[in-house]
Structure formats: structure tokens, C-alpha cells
């Protein structure tokens, strides 16, 4: 510690510790603790705060998890987010692989830039662009009807298609970048050697490429799932009233000033994300230090 004092001086150390401490405490831990505290207390008018009814209870969670309506939405959010993750992975893997193999060419550089541009556009606007295509009178329905595939418009929005397509579209980059980073470090000679030994292409990918990309894969899957499950703008625009998302429940409670219930929902969302992380790490047998770089 004396050497740190030498290095930074009293003022520097004061800055470092106060700033980090305030950040940790005031911006992160205290809000989180208060929220968790809220989640375990009933929703009461301020006069009853500290009164006999203001005690810790699981009532909020019972509503979140046992109410049929909520349950459906919670489960839907889970499977839809998993589906989004899987679809993203399937869509991105070939692209990341191709880009990584061509990394030396100038074309790959342009492709990489082209890849990033759509993601500089606001999330809301990206979802809005898809709304234009998928809405009841949108381009897709117009085209499909004029081609005679369907006789009346298909309700993409209320049938969850919109949300899933939109979520995949919105968070692609978070799958592609870690995959690309992981695949880029793969020695191309390994692939050639495997091919030389007569392995079919799918075996090469299963035996050589995928194991190498595992940390990137885990990273991409975790981040994509969490962004999807925690997304609010996309379901708001691309999911109709018939296909609510879990985050929308949180917002509804927030708007209804029932912050205790909102906190309970939020708590469940965070737990869901944590569980997903643990499952992915266990499935892929990676450690936290492999993923968080």
C-alpha cells in the first residue's frame, strides 16, 4: 500500500477509491439491494410503510410464477429466447467462419465494416424497419398475397414470428463477433489437415472447428440470450398484444406504480439469466474466465 501511495499520491488514491466506491455502492449495489428488498415486500400505500403489514413475504413471487397468464409469458420468453439464440447461432456460424478464413483479404475488412453498420442504427429503428415488413399490411403480406401463397394476411406480429425474427436481427452482432474472434485464431492448417485425412466437412466442423470456437460460442450464446430475454423495444414493436414478453410485464407493473411486483419480476428475470449462464457453461464445459475476456 505504501508503494501505491508513492505512485498515486494522497489525492490520486482518494480519487481512485472514492470514485470506484461510489460507483460500486451508489450506482450498483445499493439500488440492487433496495430492489431485492422491494421484491420481498407487499405493495402498500406509503402510510402503511413500516406498519404491521410491511413484512417480508413471497407473495409477489407467487403471483409472478404461479399465475397462469404470467406463467405462459415467462415460459414463452424462455423458449423464444432459446430459439432466438439457436437461430442466431445457425445464421452466424457460417458467416463468422467464412470471414475468419478470409481474414487476410481486403474484402473481409469491408464485410466486417458492413456487418457493423446496421448495428449503429438505433435498436428501435431496426425493430421499426421489420415492423414495416411484417405488419398486417406490410410488404411481406403484400408480396405473399400477390403471389397467391396466402389468401389473407398472416398475422406475423401476434403469432410470435415478428418478435423472433426481430430479436435475431437485432442481436446478431453479439453472436457474430465472439464467434469470429474465436475462429480467427484457428490455425487453417488444422482444417486442411483434417480434410487431408479424409474427414467430411461436417466432421471437420464438429471435431476441429467447433471445439476451438467453444469460448466464443459460449460468450455469444449467453449474451444473445440475455439481450433477447431482457429486450423491451423489440417485443414492444414486433409483438402484438397477443404475444407479450416478460419485460413488458415488468414495465406494466412499473407503470402501475406497483414497484414491489415489478421488482419481483425483475428478480426472476435476473435469476433466469444466471441459470442460463450456468447451464451453458456446464453444457459447454467452459469457465467464466474463458468467456469474460
Amino acid at each position: 500500500m505504501s508503494s501505491a501511495l508513492t505512485r498515486f499520491g494522497r489525492l490520486g488514491l482518494a480519487y481512485i477509491f472514492t470514485a470506484t466506491g461510489l460507483w460500486l455502492l451508489v450506482l450498483m449495489l445499493l439500488p440492487l439491494i433496495v430492489t431485492i428488498d422491494y421484491a420481498f415486500r407487499p405493495f402498500l400505500p406509503p402510510v402503511d410503510w413500516g406498519g404491521p403489514n410491511d413484512r417480508y413475504t413471497f407473495d409477489n413471487f407467487a403471483v409472478v410464477l404461479l399465475n397462469k397468464f404470467n406463467q405462459t409469458i415467462f415460459l414463452k420468453t424462455i423458449w423464444a429466447s432459446v430459439l432466438v439464440t439457436v437461430l442466431s447461432l445457425a445464421a452466424c456460424y457460417p458467416v463468422a467462419y467464412t470471414l475468419a478464413r478470409e481474414k487476410r483479404s481486403g474484402r473481409a475488412r469491408w464485410l466486417a465494416i458492413a456487418l457493423i453498420i446496421p448495428f449503429l442504427v438505433n435498436e428501435l429503428l431496426r425493430a421499426f424497419a421489420w415492423q414495416l415488413l411484417l405488419s398486417y399490411k406490410g410488404l411481406f403480406n403484400q408480396v405473399l398475397m400477390s403471389l397467391g401463397f396466402i389468401s389473407e394476411p398472416f398475422d406475423f406480429i401476434n403469432k410470435n414470428v415478428g418478435v423472433i425474427v426481430g430479436l435475431v436481427y437485432t442481436y446478431l452482432l453479439f453472436m457474430i463477433l465472439p464467434l469470429y474472434t474465436a475462429l480467427e485464431s484457428l490455425d487453417p492448417n488444422l482444417v486442411d489437415a483434417a480434410r487431408d485425412l479424409g474427414a467430411p466437412w461436417w466432421r471437420i466442423h464438429w471435431d476441429v472447428v467447433l471445439p476451438h470456437a467453444k469460448p466464443g460460442l459460449a460468450n455469444g450464446c449467453i449474451v444473445t440470450f440475455m439481450l433477447a430475454a431482457g429486450s423491451f423495444a423489440v417485443p414492444q414493436l414486433l409483438g402484438g398484444t397477443g404475444s407479450l414478453w416478460f419485460t413488458q410485464l415488468i414495465y406494466n407493473q412499473f407503470n402501475a406504480i406497483n414497484w414491489n411486483m415489478g421488482a419481483a419480476y425483475a428478480f426472476c428475470l435476473v435469476i433466469l439469466c444466471l441459470v442460463f449462464i450456468v447451464i451453458v457453461m456446464w453444457l459447454l464445459r467452459v469457465r467464466l474466465s474463458d468467456i469474460a475476456r
Binding site: P31, M226, G230, F232, I250, F254, W259, C273, I277
Partner: peptide
């Protein structure tokens, strides 16, 4: 602890900020 916020859903951060203040 310092890295955790980027892994936290944005609406949870928003909600807890609102509640706390």
C-alpha cells in the same frame, strides 16, 4: 462486481435506479 452491470438486463438497471432514488 465491476463487470457485472454489463451482464445485467438494462431494464433491471433502470428499474432499480428508479426505485433506489
Amino acid at each position: 462486481l465491476l463487470v457485472a452491470p454489463v451482464l445485467m438486463p438494462g431494464i433491471v438497471i433502470g428499474l432499480s435506479t428508479a426505485i433506489f432514488w
